[in-house]
Nucleic acid binder design. Structure first.
Lengths: 139, 139
DNA sequence: TTGTGTGCAAAATCTTTGCACTTCG
DNA sequence: CGAAGTGCAAAGATTTTGCACACAA
């Protein structure tokens, strides 16, 4: 799990400045394990830095994601969500009928990636997995 | 694989009307294996129904997705993409740098699905897997 | 014929950009 | 001090909604 301090260090090492708005965004992002829209992150960040603008939140989230310090999350409800980079590698399980979404973890696809990598020459380091089925209530 | 005719039948059975714009959207969606933004689907649909509006594309895609006849796909580039419902079994390997896409097969995720099914109570019968990495040329 | 479906235009969101001012280093 | 970072306002892009007309069934 990447801590706030760890992220700040990496930002700094990458040549970016540590500012109050950035601290606030990072803290807001790490506040819980969920993923949040830029607007939600902004709302939380305001608590720590009352002057921070939504624009800065967008820019900071993009920066963090590009540096691998945060992750972009995509779900049916609200695309463009972000989560701390190390908040588990979870995927979504969707109910085709009622649309309920559940997160799950523990997918170990490394063997598959290696196999694919050998076959295609690609260096696979990221993936998107979405499962679709029927939830218990809809079966 | 759900065919255009199959989708039309199901729409009809569900009490929805078969119209030219809807046919055009469905055909556009099934035209290839990829997933596309509403705007892309619209552009393709225009070939078959020159009067179809973007709004109708949005509404039709939403309807199809709700009925399970199309799927919403989320990726980093362009959220809100849609694909034919049965295209779930074609997987893509994308190069993050040059965008090259390769298809691959032979993913055997059944053990994972069973495990997830036991844990969550869901009956998993479809999935979307997308791998992202660097192609040999870009490494 | 009837009411679902459609297109248009406009509204509501969401995201990005330009620019002068701040502030970290 | 100098350049990166910020906030504001405005522009762009995307998605939704209201409404009168069109057309499947």
């Amino acid at each position: 799990m990447l801590t706030e301090q760890g992220i700040l260090d990496q930002l700094s090492q990458a040549g970016y400045r540590i500012t109050r708005p950035r601290r606030a965004v990072i803290a807001a992002l790490l506040e819980d394990e969920g993923h949040h829209s830029p607007a939600e992150v902004h709302e939380r960040a305001l608590v720590r830095c009352p002057t921070v603008g939504l624009v800065t939140v967008y820019r900071t989230l993009e920066l963090l994601a590009d540096l691998g310090l945060a992750r972009r999350i995509h779900t049916d409800d609200g695309c463009h969500g972000y989560a701390g980079a190390s908040h588990g590698h979870h995927h979504h399980l969707l109910c085709r009928h009622c649309g309920a979404a559940v997160e799950f973890e523990g997918c170990d696809l490394s063997p598959l990636f290696e196999k694919i990598g050998r076959t295609t020459g690609y260096c696979v380091d990221e993936h998107l997995l979405e499962l679709i089925g029927l939830c218990p209530a809809c079966q």
